[in-house]
Design a binder for these strands. Structure first.
Length: 104
DNA sequence: TTGGTGACGGTAT
DNA sequence: TATACCGCCACCA
C-alpha cells in the first residue's frame, strides 16, 4: 500500500509453476512445455524456475517433450522412476504415451 | 544498455 | 534413432 507494493509478477509466476509440479501424480510425468502452456509462458522459463526452485520438489516428474532429462539429473531421476514405477522405454527415457499427465 | 545464457521445443539432416 | 540448428524470452553481469 505504501509507495511500493511489489506485486512481483515474477514471484507469482514461480508459485504458479511450483503449484502445477506439485500436482503431478507419482509414477506419472508432465513436460516443461505443458506447464508453460498452463501458466502462460515459454518452456525455457519453466526450466529456469525448476533450476532455481527445485528444492523440495518432485522435479523428476517434469521431463522434456521426448521424455528425457539432462544427463546430470538422469541418474537420480531413474532412481525415482524405479521407486515410483514410472513406465520407461527401452531407450531409458520415460514412456510418454503411458506416463504423460496433462496438467489442468 | 547490450549481449550472453539456458532443467526447452520443433524441424532438418 | 541420434545430432545439429534455430527460435524464444526472461534473467544476469
Amino acid at each position: 500500500m505504501s509507495h511500493s507494493d511489489p506485486p512481483d509478477p515474477r514471484e507469482a509466476y514461480v508459485e504458479a509453476v511450483l503449484a502445477v509440479v506439485e500436482q503431478v501424480p507419482p509414477g506419472r510425468v508432465t513436460t516443461y512445455g505443458s506447464i508453460a502452456d498452463v501458466v502462460g509462458s515459454g518452456p525455457r522459463r519453466v526450466g529456469s524456475v525448476m533450476a532455481r526452485e527445485a528444492d523440495g520438489l518432485p522435479w523428476w516428474r517434469v521431463v522434456r517433450a521426448d521424455g528425457s532429462l539432462p544427463p546430470s539429473h538422469d541418474e537420480r531421476a531413474h532412481a525415482a522412476y524405479a521407486e515410483e514405477g514410472t513406465p520407461l522405454t527401452a531407450s531409458g527415457r520415460v514412456d510418454m504415451v503411458a506416463a504423460y499427465w496433462q496438467p489442468s
